[in-house]
Amino acid sequence: MKITDIEQALRERPGDRQLWLDYAALLEERGDARGTLIRLEQRRDRLRPVDRVGVQQEIDELASAHRQAWDAALPDGATVLARRHGFATKVAVEWSDEDDAPMLVDRVLREPFVTALRISPTEDIEQAEVEAAGEQAWEAFDDGADAGQETDAPEPSIDPGALATLDFSRLSELGFPYLGLGALGAKALAASAFFRIGASGTGPTAGDTTGLLDSLDLRYSRIGNDGLSALAASPGFRGVRRLHLQHNRLTAKAARDLHRFTNLTELDLRYNTIGEEGAQALLAAPFIGSLRRLLLHRADISDAGAKLLADSPRLPPAIRSYWRNA
């Protein structure tokens, strides 16, 4: 078996201990210390907690000596958030220069075990957006518009085309927190995923056209109803179980589009004014009885919407309790 085949198999079955040992042997042949690390960590996990101290010390020393070399393949600006056996599995990247950013992300995605990626804006981009938002808000206020209401279209602050070039299909966790994707960015993601998954059939089972993605974080991404609608229609995103959508200018229409995410167990919709109609649409969603977490504020759904949630037998009892008392 080629090493790349083993890596793909391990991405799909990260708990396969024997496969990891086979992989360790290949790494050791190449002089990669992560082969030794795999063996040590597997041995540690079989020991009683009281007997683990010595092995853990060996692991820490090995990791400390080699971590810099292991991360050398990652581009500058990438931060490792989680590892398995020394390999990066979750990485954060800042989206800065439009020209370099897609390339940087692409390099991260080439790392063999990265299955979780978080792309967020640089501080400069954030600051510029805050200032622009302030100016727009005062202009709208001076023109007599409703100060709190964001009526302008959710434009992206990054190039949607650049996003479309990236292949996220092997990820189980993807986040663009605080990055102004806008509706166009969301549509680009959806379209790209549609073609890639359609072409490769990378779903959990052979021939499955639903993506591997389990968690999608789009908080403060300004995707709006149209952006969410595009993602809901895309097989690459339809299978997610955890969805963060706070502060995205969503309304009741988006709550209806959420019905297409049939596997949802966690949904964060805070700071979107979906109103009573949105609450009603949520209660009609196929996933409503399976939710473990539903994050919303009373202001998002109005008193009438809160009452609907409090009274609905479709909600799991614990979440209904929350709304009976919120």
Binding site: A133, G134, W138, F141, R219
Partner: peptide, 27 residues
């Protein structure tokens, strides 16, 4: 959420400048 503004400005004057009608308290 992750902050994108510092502490609340002391006032809404032009110099402090960070307060606006859509000021996002959550960040």
């Amino acid at each position: 959420e992750e902050p994108n503004t510092e502490d609340m400005p002391d006032c809404a004057c032009g110099i402090c400048g960070e307060i606006h009608p859509r000021f996002d308290t959550t960040r």
